[in-house]
Design a protein around this nucleic acid. Structure first.
Lengths: 254, 254
DNA sequence: ATTGATAAAATGTCAGACATTTAATAAGCT
DNA sequence: AGCTTATTAAATGTCTGACATTTTATCAAT
């Protein structure tokens, strides 16, 4: 893969890092490939070597690249990526063409974790949390069915899930919710289609809200599971398969 | 807080970053404090400005610091930390004096998540996973009761938990397991005391192993919960309190 | 054919000057 | 006095060129 296929660059090491990261996240390079050298990248985008080095340092920190003095820069496999690095989260925002294997892995995680999280939220949510959750739900209702407000609807949907993670009042789960935002957005983006689907999705979200309002943990769990089942249907995923398909090469990882 | 109270520096930007990160993680600076400026740090440790900048860039990426041109460097609050950043994980390895609030938050997360993870592992574990789990357990047995082998025992204990996360065969949970390693090690390190305690802990681990061996998810869940109850007792933590105590200031975070 | 020295190429490091942002201070005007 | 506006100082950010270090390939000698 060469640099020529990449979009233009708007200046700033962060932008450069995002640009390159997205190319890697969407599979423009294969694991093991040699990445272009610093000077070539700098020449191609007309930026200083400093900017290139800063950008590559970020990609390296996120596990996307491996750099060794004298040898060059190599592309790492997906199993080496630091999926929970906030940088990754930022780079994934707005990405549509995520690797299908990655989408399935993230969905599988959410399917296993989010019911639990909803249960915790039902136990720990404060009045403010519930207010925020209600606001997000009402936003979803208002923007439902209006094709022009589809973007808003997605925002409210993502906010709904985020509030649930925040409402656990646990630092780690909160961090998790923040990190999953872009992934959730990508999933939600793909899973909205006709009116009927949307209506059903809305109803299932409503059940989660109600369960958290009354503090019923087990009800929240099952309701959250139903929301994710709806998502799975829309995405064409079979929710029973919790493993991510990496079993073939999994034995080497540990 | 000044730099004078910090230990000596052995060279390398990564070492410098770890040194400063640990000082921050153990609360040597208060949130909002101004962090020493680049030139002062460089002078104090006799390193170039480059090294200092690289180190501070890492700390900034992990959410420990906030740097703004012209103003300086500020220390951020714990709620802003990127707890799931692999850098954090590395910096926390071997740290004993972790902030108690952070220890509780991490324990609470594990108490909620690890039973679920054990259940997933029971469903998805491969033969190799089970072999690794058995090896870790036997290592724990061998090194039990021998005061000289206490370090080894900790290693096996941590490996035991790690294998469970790996055995889910889900990229996100695997990443999670990798990231929790140092935290688990810190908790395990504190929770081993007399022979009787150790014996009981060993038995509870054995139940988890057996449940995963036979693929019984619900049994694995309850067994994992029992392991964590044992840990909680040893740490003097009440496992019912799942929130992290940050409720007071939680409303501002979202 | 193996070993060893050499050279080339990549990333890593350093030092200095300069740019930019921010905040404090002083000057000047109404 | 009070407000606005230059000026200055101090911090982080950026650029550039040279040099260091590590790795790999090449070639020579035994």
């Amino acid at each position: 893969m060469t640099l020529d296929a990449l979009p233009a660059h708007q200046g700033g090491a962060e932008n450069l890092a995002r640009l390159l990261a997205r190319a890697l996240l969407t599979g423009h390079w294969q694991p093991g490939d040699v990445f272009p050298k610093e000077l070539d990248i700098g020449r191609h985008f007309s930026v200083s070597r400093n900017q290139v080095r800063n950008a590559l340092a970020s990609l390296s920190a996120a596990g996307l690249l491996e750099r060794t003095a004298g040898r060059g820069t190599q592309v790492r496999a997906m199993s080496e990526w630091h999926l929970l690095d906030p940088l990754m989260s930022e780079w994934m925002t707005g990405l549509i063409n995520l690797d299908p294997q990655l989408v399935r892995a993230i969905y599988a995680f959410r399917f296993s974790a989010e019911p639990l999280v909803a249960g915790l939220a039902a136990q720990a949510a404060s009045a403010e949390d519930i207010a925020r959750l209600e606001a997000a739900f009402e936003g979803m209702q208002r923007s439902a069915g209006q094709p022009a407000a589809r973007h808003q609807h997605t925002e409210y949907d993502v906010a709904f899930h985020d509030v649930i993670y925040q409402a656990t009042h646990n630092l780690v789960w909160r961090q998790m919710g923040y990190l999953l935002r872009p992934s959730i957005m990508a999933l939600v983006h793909r899973s909205q289609h006709d009116i009927k689907t949307l209506d059903d999705s809305l109803a299932r979200h409503g059940h989660v809200l109600k369960a958290i309002q009354v503090g019923d943990a087990t009800a929240a769990e099952t309701a959250a599971r139903e929301v994710l089942r709806r998502t799975a249907i829309d995405l064409g995923i079979v929710p029973d398969t919790l493993s991510d398909g990496a079993n073939l090469s999994s034995s080497r990882h540990m």
